[in-house]
Amino acid sequence: MQITPEAVVLPADTSRLPQGKHGPIYPRTPACYGFTVIATVKPGRADAVRGYGQTLAKALEVDPHLLAPLKLHYLRWVLFDNDTRFMYQGIFDTDFDKYTEDAVALFIKAGVATVFENLEGFPEDWRTNPDAFVRFVRDHQCPSFMEYGEYPYVTADEIKRALQVKDALSTMLDQLQ
């Protein structure tokens, strides 16, 4: 099977995109689905943002599959402008509506907070009002206009399976030697 890298340009005008429960449904791209949120950090909360990163990393050491329901490829968090602004960038295999609803449910079930609690304008009632969580994300979303995939439209589960097959083949070849 030949895999050809691919790029897609996304429309600036989202009014023609199909509308989901929480706004436009961006098309799946070669990088799958994702979004970027940029928001202002509450004064004095940059260390809490960094601390939450440590907390999440430790939680993943205990349960590497903690975030599995989100079908993530990756997350990237960046503090910038002298730690006054925060960027959350995620790439995942589900559409926006499912990802955000699953994220709220996951945080509630796990009894954990979200890094977004350190951002100005984030709703305090997000646990009981998931629509407010989604509105915050949509209000701070910075849609991409081009996305590229070296291995386009491949899901995280497909990548994991391919790596398992690779490991199994390597083990088998090692045993033959």
Rank of each mutant, 00 (worst) to 15 (best):
L169T: 14
D13N: 13
V9C: 14
M1N: 11
P11D: 04
F107M: 12
G23F: 03
A103I: 01
D157H: 14
K160T: 08
T40C: 10
Q164V: 10
Y88G: 01
D125C: 07
W77M: 09
F80H: 15
R28M: 11
A168L: 10
A168C: 05
K166L: 11
Y88V: 06
D131F: 03
I25E: 00
E120Q: 15
F122E: 03
M172E: 11
F92L: 06
Y52R: 12
F107T: 09
A7D: 11
Y52E: 07
I159Y: 07
A46E: 12
Y151R: 04
G51P: 05
P5W: 04
H73I: 07
F133R: 00
L173K: 12
L10G: 04
V137T: 02
Q19S: 11
G20L: 06
Y26A: 00
Q141M: 15
I3F: 08
A68I: 12
I3K: 10
T29C: 02
G20Q: 05
C32G: 00
Y88M: 08
V9Q: 14
S170L: 15
Q19P: 04
A48F: 02
V49F: 08
D131W: 05
Y153W: 12
F35R: 02
Y88H: 12
T29M: 00
P24L: 01
Y26T: 02
T14Y: 01
T100Q: 04
H140E: 06
A12P: 05
E150G: 07
F107E: 07
L173R: 14
N129F: 11
R138S: 02
K160Y: 06
A7F: 13
G121E: 12
M1A: 14
I91F: 03
D131I: 10
A103E: 02
A46T: 07
A31E: 00
P43G: 06
I159D: 08
E61N: 12
G149P: 00
A46M: 07
A48R: 03
V115S: 01
A113H: 09
E120R: 11
Q19G: 05
P24T: 04
G20P: 05
F145V: 13
Y33L: 04
G121W: 07
L72F: 03
A110R: 12
F122M: 08
R76G: 10
A103H: 04
H22C: 02
L163H: 11
H73V: 08
T36V: 14
A103M: 11
T100P: 03
F122A: 06
M172Y: 14
G149W: 00
T14L: 09
K21F: 07
T171C: 09
